[in-house]
Design a protein around this nucleic acid. Structure first.
Lengths: 224, 224
DNA sequence: ACAAGTCTGTTGTTTTTACAACGGAAAAGA
DNA sequence: TCTTTTCCGTTGTAAAAACAACAGACTTGT
């Protein structure tokens, strides 16, 4: 567990908290470690949970497969990000999505009640962590809204433009890598992979973009 | 302001807090009132805000109009619900959506920093409110994910089925009213209104549902 | 009561997407 | 190295959605 303290220090939740205090808080918050191999499920739809989690290593997808096998990737979790916080409320019910490890992953589990209620041993930085947690959830909220604005576009091309523009903005560069392969991007935008692939190539042929694997370059010709 | 204390008492945020304490906290949290006529905007895309708000009376839509005039309704806010909390974080940037009053509305504004930091006058119920706030944001988070699962369905019919099923579940009844008219529902599900209207009527003709205005009845023939 | 405006369903056309199937390139594994 | 699997682009077809235009019912405001 100690091994991950430097990683935790760089997370949103423990921003501004020293390594020693984090070590103390790990006890206070009853943190536990879990590891998952690529392809394993961290959570399955219908299960119940009341812990919240930080991904220390690896990559996860929050996703949802329907009856007919259509997959929808709700969100991606990178190392250092937290998840599961939406099910912290006592009456939050069953988990609506699967959480899949798309890389070998290490997860740290916390007892959520211990964070949001006042710490019995009153660790010094507890209030900072509460504040950080609040900000982190707000951020997640915004990223969901962001995804909704991508999905709300009518055509595949508009969805791609919206998504790629946002990634460029986020990277402060017209050249960037995306965290998805083609199938995953299609699942994220809720479109058909082959149709999307086709549309990407059309956009390339029209001089809007170039790409190689998951690295993209956008060209500003004033049409976006 | 006092007039709205009974309303506030029934909100998620002040759940478990007595009317007297709410009165005291309104000062502590620097609450302010704002009223909006139907059709007025509470917030516009690109503005900045660092207050969070509770809708005391009326109805709001969180929405987003793109360059071509396509409207997307991200979410609906009913009386007693809060909004704007996603922009509470200091570096959260400009607001991504419009907030429109679809009915005459009364809004109570709070200084968000005063909630999540420890109260200087240490009101007794402050920690309960922090906890409530946390749960409320979690709930909003889940409702966004819910909406994403509707939108991720491939066809208009599937989107309708997903949405109507969820409403039935939420109302614990196969008969219920929805808070949208046809155009608004189409904007919420990101589909064309006329195509959606058409699909609804087909579903009615096939005996899956009946409806009148915004009141729907679902019939379970085992196909859903 | 009347006029203006809104809401909803209907239809036909055009555009776009989903779906299926395939082949080559690249990556992974034995 | 060789085989197997995954990834990605391509094409054609069928299905679905967007779009536009319209008419009747209902609401709202005067």
């Amino acid at each position: 567990m100690k091994k991950y303290i430097p990683i935790l220090k760089r997370t949103r939740l423990f921003s501004g908290v020293g390594e020693e205090e984090i070590g103390a808080m790990l006890n206070c918050l009853q943190a536990r470690l879990c590891t998952y191999k690529k392809g394993e499920y961290v959570l399955r739809q219908g299960e119940h949970t009341d812990t919240f989690m930080i991904l220390a290593e690896g990559k996860l997808h929050i996703q949802c497969d329907d009856y007919w096998g259509n997959r929808s990737i709700i969100n991606m979790v990178s190392a250092g990000e937290m998840f599961g916080e939406a099910y912290a409320a006592p009456e939050s019910g069953a988990v609506m999505n699967d959480v899949l490890a798309v890389e070998d992953s290490v997860i740290i589990l916390f007892d959520v009640k211990r964070i949001i209620t006042v710490c019995p041993s009153a660790c010094r930085f507890h209030s900072a962590v509460v504040q950080n947690m609040f900000y982190a959830i707000s951020e997640k909220n915004r990223s969901l809204v962001q995804k909704i604005t991508f999905m709300s576009k009518r055509t595949t091309r508009e969805k791609l433009i919206a998504y790629l523009s946002e990634e460029a903005k986020r990277h402060n560069s017209s050249e960037f890598s995306i965290p998805f392969n083609r199938q995953q991007l299609a699942d994220y935008l809720s479109v058909d992979r082959s149709a999307m692939s086709n549309e990407l190539c059309k956009m390339r042929d029209e001089g809007m973009i170039t790409f190689e694997k998951n690295r993209f370059v956008l060209y500003d010709d004033g049409t976006i």
